[in-house]
């Protein structure tokens, strides 16, 4: 049911954990099935130097969390904000239709963490 890339990110998730004293934090719940993802960011000069995640959810939720952190790591925050759940799903070689909503969780958590950082800059 899952692609090789999904299984790879599920078995060896990248960037699991939590950054101490993060510059941005985002935690969102998935209204659909009750899953939760938390993203912490280390940001310097608008560049995402480090990112870590924790996810309470299915295989697709864990894999999309892992892939999103890979996609935004080292990127400028404005670029990172443009990454959609569709792009994450594509990078994973696609997701089953019933699992598309899981990828929304990752997109939202990343956005919330960056917005948290931006709000602290003001």
């Amino acid at each position: 049911m899952y692609s090789e890339q999904v299984m790879d990110h599920f078995t060896n998730p990248r960037n699991v954990g939590e950054i101490d004293n993060p510059d941005g934090v985002g935690q969102v719940g998935n209204a659909k099935c009750g899953d939760i993802m938390k993203v912490t960011l280390k940001i310097k000069d608008d560049i995402i130097e480090d990112v870590k995640f924790k996810t309470f959810g299915c295989g697709a939720a864990i894999a999309t969390s892992s892939m999103s952190t890979e996609l935004i790591k080292g990127k400028n925050i404005h670029e990172a904000l443009k990454i959609t759940n569709k792009a994450v799903a594509e990078a994973l070689g696609g997701l089953p239709p019933v699992k598309m909503h899981c990828s929304v969780l990752a997109e939202e958590a990343v956005k919330m963490a960056i917005e948290d950082y931006l709000s602290k800059q003001k």
Binding site: Y2, M7, F10, T11, K32, C33, G34, D35, G57, C58, G59, A61, I62, C102
Partner: peptide, 21 residues
Amino acid sequence: EALLLSLDLKGIAGSSGSACT
């Protein structure tokens, strides 16, 4: 579901009542 996938990778077949499955 994450639990079932992990078990399956170890060769163990089970099932779950989770919403995600």
